Simulated scan of single mutants.
Amino acid sequence: MGLLSAFFRRDPLLAHYKIGRRLGKGTFATVKEATEKTGDKKKWAVKIIDKRVLAPEDEQALTKEVEIMKQLAELQHPNIVFLKEVCQSEGTFYIVQELCAGGELFDRIVEKEKYSEKDARIAMKQIVSAVDACHDLRIVHRDLKPENLLYQAKTGENKDVIKLADFGLANMLKADEALATACGTPGYVAPEVIAQVGYDKEVDIWSLGVIMYILLCGFPPFYSENNPQLFRMIQRCQYTFTRPYWDQVSDQAKDLIRSMLVVDPKKRATCKQILEDPWMTVDEPQKKPELEGFQKNMRVYNAKRKFKAGVMALAAISAMQRGAAATKAANKLKERVSKGDVDESEAPAPAPEG
Rank of each mutant, 00 (worst) to 15 (best):
A153K: 08
A178D: 13
A170N: 04
V161E: 04
L144M: 01
C183N: 05
E111W: 07
K114S: 15
D160M: 05
I194W: 08
K163L: 08
G187F: 03
G103K: 09
V189Y: 07
R108L: 10
C134S: 03
K154F: 06
V110K: 07
D132Y: 09
R138P: 00
T181R: 10
R121N: 11
L144W: 01
D119M: 07
K114H: 15
A170F: 02
Y188G: 04
G156L: 00
P191K: 13
P146G: 07
E157C: 02
E113G: 05
D160Y: 06
L173H: 01
I109C: 13
N158Y: 11
D166V: 06
Y151A: 02
L150H: 05
K114A: 15
K154A: 14
V193T: 08
R142I: 00
P186T: 11
I162Q: 00
I139N: 06
M172C: 09
A123D: 06
H141N: 09
K159A: 14
L164M: 05
A165Q: 06
K118T: 13
L164W: 03
A178R: 15
V110A: 12
I127L: 11
Y188L: 02
E192D: 13
N171F: 00
G187D: 08
G103C: 11
C183H: 06
I127Q: 05
K118M: 12
L137G: 04
D166E: 06
P191R: 12
V131I: 15
I139M: 08
F106W: 09
L179S: 04
A182M: 15
I162E: 01
Y151I: 01
R108E: 12
L105F: 05
L137E: 10
R142F: 01
Q126D: 09
G156C: 01
V110N: 12
T181L: 07
Q126C: 11
V193M: 08
P191Y: 12
L164R: 01
L144V: 00
Y188V: 00
A120G: 15
I127A: 03
V140A: 03
E113N: 14
L149F: 07
L137Q: 13
